[in-house]
Computed example of a mutant assay.
Amino acid sequence: MDSPVIDDTQTRAICDEIGERLRTLLKSPANDDTPDFEGKIDQLRDGLAEPE
């Protein structure tokens, strides 16, 4: 049985979905003292972005 191939578009979509789910899970009053969380997620996303 051949392994399925995941292309760059699918990989990006998977990473974006994981990021969104993490944001949802981590949104709580206990995490309000970390105002730069969104910035850190954006940095992670930018670091994973493919060069143009």
Rank of each mutant, 00 (worst) to 15 (best):
35 P>H: 08
37 F>V: 07
42 D>K: 09
1 M>C: 12
41 I>V: 15
5 V>C: 05
21 R>K: 12
13 A>M: 10
44 L>N: 10
6 I>Q: 03
37 F>R: 09
38 E>Q: 11
52 E>S: 13
12 R>Y: 05
34 T>C: 11
6 I>G: 00
30 A>S: 04
3 S>C: 09
31 N>L: 07
46 D>M: 12
3 S>V: 10
9 T>P: 00
10 Q>W: 03
28 S>E: 06
9 T>S: 07
44 L>H: 12
50 E>S: 02
41 I>S: 11
41 I>F: 15
19 G>L: 06
3 S>R: 12
11 T>Q: 06
19 G>N: 06
33 D>F: 10
32 D>A: 11
52 E>Q: 13
50 E>L: 06
52 E>M: 09
31 N>M: 12
49 A>E: 08
39 G>C: 05
5 V>N: 07
2 D>V: 13
48 L>N: 13
51 P>T: 00
15 C>S: 01
31 N>K: 03
29 P>G: 07
18 I>F: 02
29 P>Y: 12
39 G>A: 10
6 I>M: 07
28 S>D: 07
24 T>P: 01
37 F>K: 04
10 Q>A: 12
21 R>H: 03
43 Q>I: 11
43 Q>D: 15
4 P>D: 01
20 E>I: 02
23 R>H: 05
5 V>D: 07
5 V>R: 11
50 E>C: 00
37 F>G: 04
4 P>N: 00
5 V>M: 08
22 L>A: 13
7 D>R: 07
